[in-house]
């Protein structure tokens, strides 16, 4: 449950960088995503067509504060997004460095506290750091979104063990791997580990065929989720025959 909302499809899809609005629309539909992320930028031409796509998609909108570097910027952007999209949800990004796009955990916690107190339902873009996660929960967050890898890098799950630890440390908090995922196999790995959802954008938008890639990600996320629910077999160091030895014929001369 994400702030009381149950989602059947656990892929959350970003809407940036698609070759055309029509391809964006097709990709959203092909992915099966129920949640799409959007941003706010200075009013310009072409906004009407985008609004149509959002409405038509029937998806729940998760506005982001992408590009914000300070608490004040992020809070103001979130407030503006809440009015414009009529939602309490916000993907809170407070970027610490323009090149690495690494979250600034100090400003993130402060902004999360302010927004939670104002009734926002905050989805904080964070790292796999456990203490930052705890502080975010104390600040009022009921969902955490650790990165897989730096935004747009396509490196996948860069700290697999750290993500495992985070999953174990927050068993009751919905966790979404956000950012850095480049291939469906990586999204599936996150879901197999028990993450509740995956948020990505560039891997789909920059594929040669975004709609087909969106479909592939939708299937991978679903497969990973089902696999986690089914219970993966324990890993072994040694081989163990799956076919019984009992009843084997003897052909020795």
């Amino acid at each position: 449950m994400f702030y009381g909302t149950e989602l059947k499809n656990r892929l959350m899809l970003g809407t940036a960088q698609y070759p055309s609005p029509a391809i964006l629309r097709d990709a959203i539909a092909a992915s099966g995503a129920e949640v799409i992320t959007v941003s706010l930028r200075r009013e310009g031409a072409g906004g009407g067509a985008f609004r149509e796509i959002l409405k038509e998609s029937g998806c729940r909108i998760l506005p982001n504060t992408a590009g914000c570097h300070s608490v004040r910027e992020a809070v103001t952007t979130a407030q503006m997004a809440r009015e414009l999209f009529d939602t309490r949800w916000v993907k809170l990004e407070v970027i610490g460095h323009a090149d690495t796009l690494q979250p600034d955990p100090f400003a993130l916690v402060e902004a999360a506290r302010i927004l939670s107190a104002e009734g926002f339902q905050v989805f904080p873009y964070t790292t796999e750091d456990l203490i930052v996660g705890e502080k975010l929960i104390e600040a009022g967050c009921e969902v955490l979104m650790p990165w897989g890898a730096p935004i747009g890098s396509g490196q996948g799950l860069r700290n697999l063990e750290g993500l495992h630890t985070m999953r174990a440390h927050f068993p009751d908090t919905p966790l979404v791997v956000d950012a850095g995922i480049g291939a469906p196999s990586q999204a599936m790995a996150a879901m197999e580990m028990g993450f509740d959802a995956v948020l990505l954008n560039t891997a789909v938008a920059k594929a040669l065929d975004p709609a087909a890639m969106a479909r592939a990600f939708g299937q991978a996320v679903e497969a990973g989720r089902v696999a986690h629910g089914a219970g993966l077999m324990p890993r072994r160091d040694m081989a163990q025959a799956s076919t019984p030895i009992f009843g084997m014929a003897e052909f020795a001369s």
Partner: peptide, 30 residues
Amino acid sequence: DGGFVPRGARAGAVLEPGAKVEILAPMQGG
């Protein structure tokens, strides 16, 4: 000037010379 002005408060938001106004719309984002 850096602070959100809700729809209902716009008529009461007085512009001074040099005021910085931001007018934002939905945009593609990740």
